[in-house]
Nucleic acid binder design. Structure first.
Lengths: 232, 232
DNA sequence: CGGGTCATTGATCTAGGTCAACTGGCGTGG
DNA sequence: CCACGCCAGTTGACCTAGATCAATGACCCG
């Protein structure tokens, strides 16, 4: 990378909660062992079965983690948004990737070298702590997603997703603007696009949401919440 | 704990791959901050939603990790066998347990204090490395299980399970002796006991396995393996 | 204006779940 | 030593959540 790029990326790293505990020299060292990656929409970043090579950070664009069945259908594991890092587990295991990663939009990524990460973690306990917590939280989230697929109905999963997105977006405005194709959300919830569409429609007929393309309005949050247990 | 118990458990710890890198004083320190737990069959070790308190190691008996739906049905996440530790992720996150843990048989457990674990990890990098790898491998396994439930058919999951158990048991003898109730295995594979039973029977009718209670014989491994893609 | 991608809708199918009855040990207590 | 009850497992009849297949609509964007 160019000198100026290193500076630029180092400054971006500073803004990320996991990396803000690094000193300037530590950040620089990390950047000198990093690669900038431009991945075009539809392009594969790594394949299922590849050996791991370090930690990825998405700076801009959108990526997906997914796995493919022998019959060719794919199931989305997770959508990555800017600022998020992924494949933390790969820093600590020798196993190959269990899923592949593909750009949903043109994306700019940083790839941090495994060796360098280990060195800095060894010297900066707080940083190590952050990375560890990130991994543990990923684990927890995966358990929760697993639970969700195994014991909630399709409608329930969707309602939970909507409520979570609303929380996450900004201060319970009652409006969600999906930044992902509905098909990908459906897949993430382990549903077909068709079924997803039908259920959104049903929620709409019940007056629980107002649909307008990728914009979804929730008139009364508690009414939607109340929908969760009964399918009525 | 009694002085002699500490000695005893310390010696047991020495045999576990993750803990064998500890020095004797480190092990002793760990044991002084540990609790011996006897959990009777059917008894709950911790509940979904409880706050975490450290790492668990199963010394003898059998435990299960599972979660319960509001309708009361439970889904097994994992069966724990002697020598295995669990809830590593809980050392690094502040979130509560996403599942509960119950003794399948009378069990003897060691509960290692979180604080003490952190101290020893800080002073023994190799130990930390082991724990981290354990967590990362757990993560990987969970991804694989998740994949399996989402894209393999019931029969395929069962065949994979049988093949894996055979590998694990001892040197591909072609015979598996299930050490867990079939209902629990079924639940782990996200199946009902009934469906599980039917499919085992089908495999038997096809001559792929020989059934005798919890003893299952696989006459030709490759024939069973070949069954995986097609449902015929 | 023509061809992608994304989304909706309808008709039909099926894997696996549910409910219920039955079987076969096996440990306990009379 | 038998009878009883219990637990694990099996079997059968039926049902349903969600998938699949196929057609159509609504856009963008070049």
């Amino acid at each position: 990378m160019l000198e100026e790029e290193i500076l630029d990326f180092s400054r971006r790293l500073e803004c990320l909660p996991q990396f803000c505990v690094l000193t300037a020299p530590e950040r620089d060292l990390l950047m000198q062992n990093s690669a900038k990656l431009l991945v075009g929409k539809g392009q594969i970043l790594f394949q299922q079965g590849d050996l791991c090579s370090g930690l990825h950070i998405l700076l801009s664009g959108q990526m997906k983690l997914a796995f493919a069945s022998p019959q060719g259908q794919e199931k989305v594991l997770r959508i990555i948004r800017p600022g998020e890092s992924f494949c933390t587990a790969m820093l600590f295991t020798k196993q190959p990737y269990a899923f592949f990663s593909q750009a949903v939009r043109n994306s700019l990524l940083l790839h941090l070298n495994k060796q360098a990460m280990h060195e800095i973690m060894a010297s900066n306990p707080l940083f190590m702590q952050n990375i560890m917590q990130g991994l543990a939280d990923d684990y927890q989230q995966l358990v929760i997603d697993f639970e969700s697929v195994r014991l909630h109905s399709a409608a329930e999963r969707i309602v939970r997703y909507l409520l979570r997105e609303m929380e996450a977006s900004h201060a319970s405005s009652g409006v969600i603007n999906l930044d992902v194709a509905k098909g990908l959300i459906a897949s993430q919830l382990n549903l077909t696009q068709e079924h997803f569409s039908r259920i959104l429609n049903e929620l709409h007929r019940f007056g629980l949401i107002i649909l307008d393309g990728r914009r979804i309005e929730i008139p009364q949050v508690d009414a939607l919440q109340a929908y969760i247990p009964a399918t009525a």
